[in-house]
Structure formats: structure tokens, C-alpha cells
């Protein structure tokens, strides 16, 4: 639901921003899907198509100086946090102009300038990084918060419990966001996890909310309420967002483990478009947005293709700093 208190114009402008971000993430990943299939993107990529509303909704309540730690499925987090399209595509296309100079790739996209502390190849690792970042925010009295995104597969990792305990104990300004897509890599999450997050949160004294992760406004509203309290020093909070993973665990995953009759969640774009329609924004306006985003994405891909490839020699200087002494 659009927030109460904001005026109608603000609400519409925010809804349009949400829609544009959702569509940007979607188009980027659809293009990556093709680029990967055509062999232009090397390595492993994990797409978040169907889950975009969580990235966009949560990030709408954050500033550039708030920090996030992401996952292996981190494209949406990176883009919604403000990573530039050109640096993003250049990274995935293994270019020297990539955000990580072509050394990290999809699983390690990071942009410290917008507080994006990295996608991560290790399930659950972002939990402790975000907890530490929250500690820094607290000690610096910056008013900033940290957000850790993780999937329901990460609920089986010990770090969740260690970090939940530390964060609650130290009242750290951190929001934990579980993107519950029902899958723990190749296995149904309900066959991996023996507890639910509502009970878990209660055990640790962590404020908990559940939101429809396919509804950007529902996510944004829940995130905003929780983040307000987190920023006010009330300690950690957890937002569980139910959603669907439309693609495989990774691109190229044959997904023979998935049942034929699996019910896919609502399309976050259609949900957002319906809100816009209620505000009088029609198909034509959405097509204009779509055309503009397509052009931006294609321009970023073209720039990445034209950029020099990742450079081997430069890597040695970034293993560690050799002291002048």
C-alpha cells in the first residue's frame, strides 16, 4: 500500500521509481541470461528474476551511506543500491572497466561508493560482514544501518545464529532480510530447515515482520517501519520476504528437481504496474519507461563490449599493499 502521510504526487513519483528499478533489474538479468547463453558472460551466474521487489523495496528505505552485504544472487541488490549499469555489465563481461576490474564477476560485484559491500560466493557470509558494518555504524554514530540479504538456504548456516545473537546482544543497527524463495539451492527449503523465522526472531528478541516479497510496496513499507526502529537504536530487525525463484539455482541448471506443478509467485512487475494503473499510469507511459531502460541497458552492454578486457598484470598490485618501508 502507498504510505499514508505522503502526498499523492510523492506516492506516484515513488511508485514510478520503484517500477523503473524493478524493470531495470529485470531487463539487466534477462539480457544476462541471453549473454550467458551466447557465451559472452563466463563463469556462473545466479539470476534473481522474480525476486526484484525485495531489492527495490528494501533499498528504497536506505541511503548511499547505509551498507548492504549481498549473496551469490546479488545482481538486484547491486543495481538497486546504485551500482552503475556500465560498471555492472563491464564486470560481468570481464572487462577492465568493470566495477571489480573483471576480477570478481557476478558473484563478487561490489561498489563501496554506494555501500554495496559485495555479492558473495559463500552462503551466509554476508551476515557477519553486515553485522560488522553495523558495528562500525554504531561506533561512528553515523546514523547509518547495515542490511544483510540472504536466502532461506542460508538459514541452516551457523553464522545466522552467531550473528543474530551478537547483533541482538549489542543492539546493532542491522536489518536482516531473508529472501525466502522456497529453494535451498537444489532442495526444497522445507526439507532443510526445521524452524521458522518468526519463532527464531522471538528467541533472539529480534523484531520480525513478514512481507509479500513480490509486492514492492509491501516490502518497502515493512522495510521502512523496521529500518526506522533500527536507525533509532532499537537493535536488529528481521524482514522475511516470501518470493519465487523463476530461474534455476544457476543459469544452465536443468532443474529436474523442480515439481511440474510448482506455483510461481506473482510477477513483481505486474503487481507494480497494477498499482500504477490505479494511479492512472497507463500502458503507454510504461512502454516509454521500458524503451528508455532498454536503451540504457543496451548502451551499457555496448560500452562494456568496447572496453578493454580484464588486465592480468594489474592484479598483482591488488593482492596486498607492499609497504614503502
Amino acid at each position: 500500500m502507498p504510505r499514508q502521510g505522503a502526498n499523492a504526487g510523492d506516492q506516484l513519483a515513488q511508485l514510478l521509481r520503484h517500477y523503473e528499478q524493478l524493470l531495470t533489474v529485470r531487463r539487466c538479468e534477462e539480457r544476462l541470461q541471453r549473454l550467458f547463453a551466447e557465451g559472452e558472460v563466463p563463469g556462473f551466474i545466479h539470476l534473481s528474476i522474480g525476486q526484484e521487489a525485495i531489492s527495490v523495496g528494501v533499498m528504497s528505505a536506505l541511503s548511499d551511506s547505509d551498507t548492504i552485504a549481498s549473496t551469490h544472487r546479488g545482481h538486484g541488490h547491486a543495481l538497486a543500491k546504485g551500482m552503475p549499469l556500465e560498471g555492472f555489465f563491464a564486470e560481468l563481461l570481464a572487462r577492465d572497466s568493470g566495477v571489480c576490474r573483471g576480477r570478481g564477476g557476478s558473484m563478487h560485484v561490489a561498489d563501496m561508493s554506494v555501500g554495496m559491500l559485495g555479492a558473495n560466493g559463500i552462503v551466509g557470509a554476508g551476515l557477519s560482514i553486515a553485522t560488522g558494518s553495523a558495528l562500525a555504524h554504531k561506533l561512528k554514530r553515523s546514523g547509518n544501518i547495515a542490511v544483510s540479504f540472504f536466502g532461506d538456504g542460508a538459514l541452516a548456516e551457523g553464522l545466522l545464529h552467531e550473528c543474530g545473537n551478537v547483533a541482538a546482544l549489542m543492539k546493532l543497527p542491522i536489518l536482516l532480510v531473508c529472501e525466502a524463495n522456497g529453494w535451498s539451492e537444489f532442495s526444497p527449503a522445507d526439507r532443510q530447515i526445521a524452524f521458522n523465522l518468526a519463532d527464531w526472531s522471538k528467541a533472539y528478541g529480534i523484531e520480525y515482520r513478514k512481507a509479500d516479497g513480490n509486492d514492492v510496496l509491501a516490502v518497502a513499507e515493512a522495510a521502512e517501519v523496521l529500518i526506522h526502529a533500527v536507525r533509532d537504536g532499537e537493535g536488529p530487525a528481521l524482514l522475511e520476504c516470501t518470493t519465487s525463484r523463476w530461474r534455476g539455482h544457476f543459469e544452465g541448471d536443468a532443474q529436474k528437481y523442480r515439481p511440474q506443478d510448482e506455483v510461481q509467485g506473482r510477477d513483481p512487475l505486474e503487481v507494480a504496474a497494477a498499482y500504477l494503473a490505479r494511479e492512472g499510469v497507463g500502458e503507454q507511459h510504461l512502454s516509454q519507461i521500458s524503451a528508455r531502460i532498454d536503451a540504457e541497458v543496451e548502451a551499457a552492454i555496448a560500452a562494456a563490449r568496447a572496453a578493454p578486457p580484464a588486465n592480468y598484470e594489474s592484479g598483482f598490485a591488488d593482492v596486498y599493499t607492499l609497504s614503502a618501508g
Partner: peptide
């Protein structure tokens, strides 16, 4: 892990 995150955030 917290030391890593804190170090990335200015401590």
C-alpha cells in the same frame, strides 16, 4: 566476519 565488515566500513 564482523571484523571484516567493520574494516570495510571505516574501523
Amino acid at each position: 566476519g564482523m571484523a571484516v565488515g567493520a574494516a570495510m566500513s571505516g574501523l
